[in-house]
Amino acid sequence: MVWVFQQGHLAGLFATEGLGYVNLTVPVLVAAIAFGLSVDYEVFLLSRIRERWLAGVPADRAVAEGIQRTGRIITSAALLLVVVFAGFITGGFVPIKGIGLGLVLAVAIDATVVRMLLVPATMTLLNRYNWWAPAPLRKLHGRIEVSEEREPALVG
């Protein structure tokens, strides 16, 4: 964003000019929105990986199968978001263009580099330590019985 909107590189492509600054709200909004979107991808991906791991599949294969099950959906969702945020770039207000460009880059990098390369590589290296938790947290988790496999008890 600095390269385009502050320094003016490729500014003509975005129908703007180098302003010499980046609006302060742009990085904050891009970071907040990108974080919210990346959490959705992460929960979805990790749920499928953990599901396979709990089924007794070895960690490296669980990671591969989790990615196979979520890869198309994450890629499709990311592509859809990139198209929507690219529409912001066509707006007339420079901060909106900055938010659009920032989110296009953030979603593209998050969905490809982070979710499909760094997370699986790290999880494969960590193996069974991916699911380690401190004893008090394990006890709390067991006490509240957070699980997809059990039906919730009816109250009343």
Rank of each mutant, 00 (worst) to 15 (best):
V39P: 05
E42I: 05
V43G: 05
F44K: 03
F44C: 15
L45E: 02
L46V: 11
S47A: 10
I49L: 08
E51I: 00
E51N: 09
W53Q: 14
W53K: 10
A55M: 08
G56I: 10
G56N: 13
P58R: 00
P58F: 06
A59S: 15
A59W: 14
D60C: 09
D60R: 13
R61G: 07
V63S: 02
V63E: 03
A64W: 01
E65Q: 14
E65R: 11
G66I: 14
G66Y: 03
G66M: 08
G66P: 09
I67S: 04
R69Q: 12
R69C: 07
T70A: 06
R72L: 14
R72K: 09
I74E: 01
I74S: 01
I74F: 02
A78N: 03
A78H: 02
A78T: 04
L79A: 15
L79S: 15
L81A: 15
L81Q: 13
F85W: 04
A86I: 02
G87R: 05
F88T: 04
F88G: 06
F88V: 10
I89C: 15
I89D: 01
I89S: 13
T90N: 08
F93R: 07
F93N: 09
K97T: 10
G98K: 00
G98E: 07
I99A: 13
I99K: 00
I99R: 00
G100K: 01
G100D: 05
L103H: 12
L103F: 08
L103T: 07
L105N: 04
A106E: 10
A106F: 06
V107D: 09
V107A: 13
